[in-house]
């Protein structure tokens, strides 16, 4: 009992350290590696990234190896995920956008698995790292620009950033071009920030509610634990939602670039 009571004697600095520890642990390198002077160590974050990728692949792969004409429950789930990617994620603006669904659907499942794995105690929430989300968002950005230029031609693609029929062309054309490009550049940023902030904030909230016990004492658990549980459940919802938002926005951005001239 006296041991439990001492929980309330931690200083704010110590509590902060306890909370941040989870995220610091992500930087802990198991194997130190370097490529051309760039640090590519295998950290806990990288390890959980691999676990997430492996789980994603296995979930889908196992489902694709046990296909029967009369599907079981697991096959129905796998086929539904495939159908969701092909029919719900892709084809937002045109049939041509459908060919990108393997990318967005993989992204969706991968992010979902990483989000959910991050909720397991002592794991590392990879999607709460801005490096990770910005990496995927930039990948999307480059794909977007590439397919946009490929389909519309460089001139057509750049011209399409300025809406037709502007008055005072000498002023408004550069202005609109500038505005549109800010909007274009903000897309990967918002994409990355949204996922990162949601997952990080969710985890921090859970930790903060639980840290009340460390700060105020054991009796705080009566409030902290139920609140943390509620937030935890909410985080599961957020995990699915954010994965979906990231994936569908990725698809929409790609399709906007594809059909830049038509819109």
């Amino acid at each position: 009992m006296s041991g439990l009571l001492t929980l309330g004697q931690l200083s704010p600095e110590k509590v902060r350290e306890e909370i941040i520890h989870t995220f610091e642990a992500g930087q802990h390198a198991y194997v130190h590696l370097s490529l051309l002077g760039i640090d590519i160590s295998i950290t806990k974050a990288v390890a959980f990234l691999w676990i997430g990728a492996a789980v994603t692949f296995l979930l889908m792969f196992v489902g694709s190896r046990m296909l029967k004409n009369r599907p079981g429950a697991y096959q129905v789930i796998v086929e539904e995920i495939y159908g969701f990617g092909r029919n719900s994620l892709a084809g937002q603006m045109g049939e041509e956008g459908r060919k990108f669904f393997p990318y967005t659907l993989t992204l969706f499942v991968f992010l979902l698995v990483l989000n959910l794995i991050g909720l397991i105690p002592n794991s590392y929430p990879v999607t709460s790292s801005i490096t990770f989300t910005l990496g995927l968002a930039l990948l999307t950005f480059f794909i977007t620009q590439f397919v946009g230029i490929q389909r519309n031609g460089l001139g057509g693609y750049v011209k399409a950033f300025v809406p037709p029929g502007l008055p005072l062309k000498i002023v408004f054309v550069p202005f609109m071009f500038f505005i549109e490009w800010i909007s274009e550049l903000s897309k990967p940023l918002t994409l990355a920030m949204r996922l990162y902030a949601n997952i990080l904030a969710g985890h921090l909230l859970i930790f903060i509610f639980l840290s009340f016990i460390l700060y105020f004492g054991t009796y705080m658990a009566v409030i902290s634990v139920p609140m943390a549980l509620v937030l935890y459940a909410f985080e599961i919802f957020v995990a699915v939602l954010q994965a979906y938002i990231f994936a569908i926005l990725t698809q929409v951005y790609i399709e906007i670039a594809l059909f830049r001239q038509e819109h």
Binding site: F23, E24, D39, S41, I42, W50, T131, G135
Partner: peptide, 19 residues
């Protein structure tokens, strides 16, 4: 702190390869 690990080159590198 690692919360704002803006330039975690190892994560970025392995993320691209893994993905």
């Amino acid at each position: 702190t690692g919360i704002f690990d803006l330039i975690s080159t190892s994560l970025l590198f392995w993320e691209m390869i893994t993905f």
